[in-house]
Design a protein around this nucleic acid. Structure first.
Ligand SMILES: [Zn+2]
Ligand SMILES: [Zn+2]
Ligand SMILES: [Zn+2]
Ligand SMILES: [Zn+2]
Lengths: 133, 133
DNA sequence: TTGCAAGATGTTATGTTATAACATAATGGA
DNA sequence: TCCATTATGTTATAACATAACATCTTGCAA
């Protein structure tokens, strides 16, 4: 990996880190094009792939979008809470829950490798803002 | 909803039910076009939307694909185990796990509305077939 | 019976997300 | 230096999804 690739990764991570919510690959493409107009989609997807491998970025499968990892230790299975109202995403880590999950699905002999756990709902701030049901 | 819409839904559900693994919307489009060549994407997506509302079909967010619900009681939050080797998908229901999940993410005041839980890995059959690591 | 309102379905076009395929350039070792 | 290897750039297109509007049903009221 050479200088330029690292630069793209750093730029992508910087943009993602500056936001509370997720950005699509094409949102990122727009951002990076402000400083380098000739960037094409594969550049973004390559940077995202490298960042995801290093655990610095998570993909939100249910939104086709990406966020920076909010945790100290990257490289973990995360639980993502997505506020459908304001778009904010929060990350939780719960190894015991993953264990329980492994037990549930392991009954049939399934060996888990990658977890996608995304919960849509309403965050505390948005929930408080409006009349309770 | 009139006769024709119901027919499409029934056809889509029939095709999905006849498979072990997921199908994309365009796979389904191809299937239904065999009997009605003029069908367009919105027809498929409308049928899928109606089936999903009734809990008869689940969307695999991490695959952009769909499966028929395998459970007795539809309308439940499900845990989907996806074999990355053979493509088979199995559904589990675990209310106590969902409760635990609600506890974990509820600490910050988040109110869950929809769960996406998809676990990729290797199913028993595929795991047994090959040398252990 | 006829006319209309409401909603379902058909159709066209386009928006959005992602990757294949190949060209070019940088890097480092023989 | 020269070549092999890997990274990056570039073009094109594949795959997934929906907006927007036209048309057709259906049921009801006048
Ligand atoms: Zn993380
Ligand atoms: Zn919120
Ligand atoms: Zn189900
Ligand atoms: Zn398998």
């Amino acid at each position: 990996m050479s200088r330029r690739g690292e630069t793209f990764q750093a730029q992508v991570l910087a943009v993602l880190s500056s936001r509370d919510g997720p950005l699509s690959a094409y949102d990122l493409l727009g951002e990076l094009r402000e400083s380098n107009p000739k960037i094409a989609p594969p550049t973004i997807y390559r940077a995202l792939a490298a960042l995801r491998e290093r655990g610095r970025v998570h993909r939100l499968e249910s939104l086709n979008a990406f966020i920076a990892c909010q945790c100290e230790n990257h490289q973990h299975a995360s639980i993502l809470s997505i506020c459908d109202d304001c778009g904010a995403v929060e990350e939780s880590v719960a190894p015991d829950l993953l264990e329980k999950l492994a037990t549930v699905i392991g009954k049939s002999g399934f060996a888990p490798l990658r977890h996608v756990i995304e919960v849509h709902g309403v965050c505390a701030e948005c929930g408080a803002g409006q009349a309770p049901a």
